[in-house]
Design a protein around this nucleic acid. Structure first.
Lengths: 87, 87
DNA sequence: TAAATAATTAGACAATTTTCTAATTATTTA
DNA sequence: TAAATAATTAGAAAATTGTCTAATTATTTA
């Protein structure tokens, strides 16, 4: 199980999460938004998946990535370690 | 201005934030809680300060560190980049 | 079934981060 | 004022992370 905080530490990965907030996207569509090689993006996607922040589903030759619905709750729980503030 | 996400990515630094939630502590007291050299802790404290997550005030030969009251709001704002959810 | 397309894996390299010891600065106390 | 204490700075080494190209796997289409 990967580290959520580490996953959130990289700006490319955070941008991917913001993109997936709008709609599901396959790996190629995601990679097209960055000036970076596809394998590098693939690596970032893997780290996000390890951290359970996104899910991946193969559809034909594509792999469609989705933001995990639980993502916000997870981060809120992490934050509660730092602050007791409710909500 | 340092990167808040990067600052939060390290477990030692997150533990320091949790400790400071309970009470203000000077650098020596903080270092005593870890099996790590004082300069290493000093480095972590500096990164937390850069990220504006803690403040430091010199009191005699000690330097007292405090959790910044704005810390939770700051992190919530960062989260809003990923989710539009209110609260 | 061969060629094309989408994505990942493998392996190497570069950049960044974490940690250390030794040295320095600032403050207090004997 | 000299010695002791608290903390940081400096500089180097080790570990981790991010990136690349080339190769591989899986799927679709001509």
């Amino acid at each position: 199980m990967g580290d959520v905080w580490k996953a959130l530490a990289d700006p490319t990965r955070r941008k991917i999460l913001v993109m997936l907030k709008k709609r599901d996207m396959n790996a190629g569509e995601i990679a097209a938004e960055f000036e970076m090689s596809k394998p590098s993006i693939s690596n970032h996607l893997n780290l996000l998946k390890q951290a359970d922040l996104v899910s991946a589903e193969k559809q034909g030759q594509n792999v469609v990535y989705s933001l995990k619905t639980s993502v916000i709750e997870d981060i809120m729980n992490l934050l509660s370690e730092i602050s007791d503030r409710k909500e």
